[in-house]
């Protein structure tokens, strides 16, 4: 059984149907790269997986738990403990230091004590290469560093799946690689990743599965290297051509 099983999901914002029957399955350890033009529904799909967005029809099952059923607070909490998320705009808590940002959710949600939370912060900040910035506030960090703290913050909840929503799109070009290297490292460690991304080279080299979305549907899906080398549809071919 797939770790994340998305079946025929539909979603409308008012009269606009943004997801028109999307099905994707994600196995444990997969690195799924979702690509496509803006407005193709990639971010909405990603946000449906941890119920930041609700969907109208179809089903999403994460690790045996039906996302559509997670209406009650306890179930929703279990789901979100299981699914980490990193955002385009980092969304770090500006009133807390890097370490405190990482420690907050384990303490508040998982009732970790201060000592346990500190160890978690040390471990995850070391993983993203920011041990020396633990006591800095977000405003004292570069964009790339902030995004790495955001990754550490998500990892501290030990999620089974990590969702990444265009996490390098708001970064200056020279800061993109430091973030991608961290994600690549996570992929090598076997964390299941679902990324909405515009980094085509990264999608090809690190991804185990490529999902090309077009007009609210999965237009093409398959092994990244194959699809990039030989796109089956004109739309993917055009899209690859336009971003290179």
């Amino acid at each position: 059984m797939p770790l994340v099983d998305i079946k025929d999901v539909r979603k409308s914002f008012g009269p606009v149907e943004v997801l028109r029957g999307v099905s994707v399955d994600v196995e444990r350890g997969d690195v799924v790269a979702i690509i496509g033009k803006s407005g193709s529904g990639k971010s909405t799909l990603l946000r449906c997986i941890n119920r930041l967005e609700t969907y109208d029809e179809g089903s999403i099952v994460v690790d045996g738990m039906n996302v559509g059923d997670a209406r009650k607070e306890k179930k929703l909490r279990d789901l979100r403990r299981n699914v980490g998320m990193v955002f385009q705009q980092f969304n770090l808590f500006p009133h807390l230091t890097a370490a405190e940002n990482v420690m907050l959710a384990p303490k508040v949600v998982n009732k970790a004590n201060n000592h346990e939370a500190k160890l978690l912060a040390e471990e995850t900040l070391a993983k993203v290469g920011l041990s020396d910035k633990a006591n800095n506030y977000p405003s004292q960090l570069s964009g790339g560093q902030q995004q790495r703290v955001a990754i550490a913050r998500a990892l501290a909840m030990r999620p089974n799946v990590l969702l990444c929503d265009e996490i390098t799109s708001a970064l200056d070009p020279e800061l993109v690689n430091e973030v991608l290297r961290v994600v690549e490292q996570l992929a090598r460690e076997g964390i299941t990743l679902i990324l909405v991304t515009h980094e085509m080279r990264f999608a090809r080299d690190v991804g185990t599965k490529l999902v090309f979305m077009h007009l609210g549907k999965v237009h093409e899906v398959g092994p990244p290297k194959e699809l990039f080398a030989a796109p089956r549809t004109a739309e993917l071919q055009q899209f690859i051509g336009s971003v290179h």
Partner: peptide, 22 residues
């Protein structure tokens, strides 16, 4: 900013915790 709500929401905070800590 809305991102503060979304970030804490996706870290499994409930509404009271979001208000209290973030």
């Amino acid at each position: 900013p809305k991102g503060q709500w979304e970030a804490s929401e996706s870290l499994a905070f409930n509404y009271i915790e979001q208000m209290r800590y973030v």
